[in-house]
Amino acid sequence: MVSITNAHNDLIHDAVLDYYGKRLATCSSDKTIKIFEVEGENHKLIDTLVGHEGPVWRVDWAHPKFGTILASCSYDGKVIIWKEENGKWSQIATHAVHSASVNSVQWAPHEYGVMLLAASSDGKVSIIEFKETGTSTPIVIDAHAIGVNSACWAPVSYQDVESDSSKPTKELRRFVTGGADNLVKIWKYDNDTQLYVLEDTLNGHSDWVRDVSWSPSVLLRSYIASVSQDRTCVIWSQENNKGPWKKTEVQQDKFPDVLWRASWSLSGNILALSGGDNKVTLWKENLTGNWEPAGEVQQ
């Protein structure tokens, strides 16, 4: 078990392992990002990335086929793209279209290319596509009036998996956002107009939505978990990528404290929730469609 203590001088806000599970990136209120090499029980600090002017909220590794690339977002309103080449980390791009804290950043599924989704407290989300030519074209969408707290891509999926197979399948590119207007919104890429359009608005929380997470599983049902300041976690599910979203609360009673983060396991079965009580709880759907606790971590 890897256990790293006091990696940062301040609170850690995110820690992400890369695709191969070899490198760990952590970010903190101390405005730095640290990269660790993880090998079994051992870990080694490789580099400390300094560049943000505010606390760094989230980091995300790009798919390895694009190189060793990390994206980070911060309270300073910037998204910085870092790249390692020959063992040296450098900033390769800074993305500053937001006028307030950028609260989440996530790379799109690698099938879409080098594309980044960022959510900001200025009420907007931006999608930045880094083209081969080295240019990037941000698309900025007004998503939630008061602020967007989290945004998450859907896994690559196709419209109408069930239907007549003679028709060519249509790629369905979507993402979900959660905001300070207590709403969860689903956005869809319209292939014809090349714009992102609002597909659905999910109203189920009575306070700020802190995190949204789209299950990476591409089974027939799509799952989105949204956690909120109102101490609830809602699982939204949709059949066959169409029709209405069904709301299921993870548990009837409220959680003991606000919830901060939701994370799905790779196969999409287990949901890990973490919140203000400094505790991580795991949840699993049973065959009747209810969610039952599957474990707990408390250091």
């Binding site: 609170l11 850690i12 806000h13 995110d14 820690a15 992400v16 392992l17 890369d18 695709y19 191969y20 599970g21 760990l24 209120s29 606390p55 909220w57 309270y75 307030a100 804290s101 609260n103 407290s121 009420g123 008061i146 602020g147 707290n149 300070a180 700020w208 802190r210 300041q229 901060w260 983060r261 994370s263 799905w264 396991s265 790779l266 196969s267 287990i270 890990a272 929730l273 973490s274 919140g275 400094n278 505790k279 991580v280 795991l282 971590v297 250091q299």
Partner: peptide
Amino acid sequence: STPVPNECGAIWTPSGKLLC
């Protein structure tokens, strides 16, 4: 409207471990 930052968290790693 930046929310209060989280001070703990749990993220599933690609290999199926839980990073807390």
